[in-house]
């Protein structure tokens, strides 16, 4: 028996050192992603060039010119403004709506489970196709929603085609597609909360608004953070829905970053400007995700420390 240790060790043969193991485990994932890093860096280089595909002879480094030009370019500021408004509006509304639905469905029952799965269907509709669906439904001629609108007295409601309602319409589609995402994360969160504090509060006769704001919300914070993070960063990069519904129009009502960059590349073939727009967008998302994740990790650490 005394020599068991040696025998077993000999039997194991190949052995990855303990220090190397985590690197070995994460290396493949890292390598795959680094492959993606190379084009990323190329794009950053492009953003410092005067680079139009249609004028290859004029391609040269102009360093910060693409960025400096943005300063005086009302189009850029409009893009920034529209992107932030869009992201802010959709995330706020989806968060409120998603939380509301999650609270309605919190109790486990056959009906609730069924409804929660049904509500996931919009999430499973590709945004590009969802936009197509909504376009059909908001068609002023045969669109069912336009018909409904006319029934409630909105005879001439122009949905995505009027500057005054275009944002509303795409936000509506975004809400339709992505609220289920927030709903499902928050529902998961609600259902995993420990029951004791709520039972105690109920026994003590604590008012329910108080319970909600002082117990439910704080305990749900990590879930809300994750859901908000994923949504916010996706939303500020929205492309599919807006492009399919209005191509950024009418006018420049909805020229968000990705739409503007897409048009700059594919139509104007102005690679330099397109890349610079994307780099700025990336910087915004990097900054936001950094803030969120630091916060998230801190929460997590604290939760761990307490337990």
């Amino acid at each position: 028996m005394a020599s068991t240790a040696r025998e077993r060790k000999a039997a194991s043969g190949f052995r990855i050192s303990r220090k190397a193991l985590p690197y070995v485990l994460s290396l493949p994932a890292l390598l795959v992603c680094i492959g993606i890093l190379v084009p990323f860096l190329s794009a950053v280089v492009y953003s410092f060039q005067r680079y139009r595909l249609s004028q290859p002879w004029a391609r040269q480094f102009n360093w910060g010119d693409n960025y400096i030009n943005f300063m005086t370019d009302p189009g850029f500021w409009n893009t920034l403004k529209v992107s932030l408004i869009y992201a802010g509006t959709t995330v706020t509304l989806e968060l409120i709506l998603g939380l509301g639905i999650a609270l309605l469905l919190q109790r486990r029952s056959t009906v609730n489970n069924f409804v929660s799965i049904m509500l996931l269907m919009p999430l499973m509709t590709a945004p590009a196709l969802a936009a197509l669906m909504w376009k059909l439904m908001t068609n002023p001629g045969f669109g069912i929603l336009s018909y409904f609108a006319s029934l409630i007295g909105l005879e001439d409601f122009r949905w995505a085609s009027s500057p005054s309602s275009a944002l509303f319409t795409v936000v509506l589609v975004d809400i339709w597609v992505y609220t289920p995402f927030i709903m499902i994360l928050l529902l998961a969160g609600l259902r995993s909360l420990p029951t004791q504090p709520f039972e105690a509060a109920a026994l003590d006769g604590v008012p329910r608004t108080f319970v909600f704001f002082r117990i439910t919300l704080p305990m749900l914070t990590p879930y809300i953070l994750t859901a908000t993070l994923f949504r916010l960063l996706d939303s500020i990069q929205q492309f599919d829905i807006i492009y399919a519904m209005t191509q950024g129009g009418p006018g420049d009502t909805l020229t968000v970053f990705q739409v503007e960059a897409y048009l700059n590349f594919f139509q104007s073939t102005n690679v330099g400007r397109s890349a610079a727009l994307m780099v700025i967008l990336w910087a915004i998302t990097y900054f936001l995700s950094n803030v969120f994740i630091k916060h998230w990790l801190r929460l997590r650490e604290r939760a761990r420390g307490e337990s």
């Binding site: 028996m1 240790a5 040696r6 077993r8 194991s12």
Partner: peptide, 24 residues
């Protein structure tokens, strides 16, 4: 857990390079 310094001997054998599952 690995020690930062020092030696662990089981049955007189140094365990530094021996994984948990082989220590008996």
């Amino acid at each position: 857990i690995e020690p930062d310094e020092g030696q662990i001997l089981i049955g007189g054998e140094d365990m530094a390079e021996v994984d948990a599952e082989h220590r008996g």
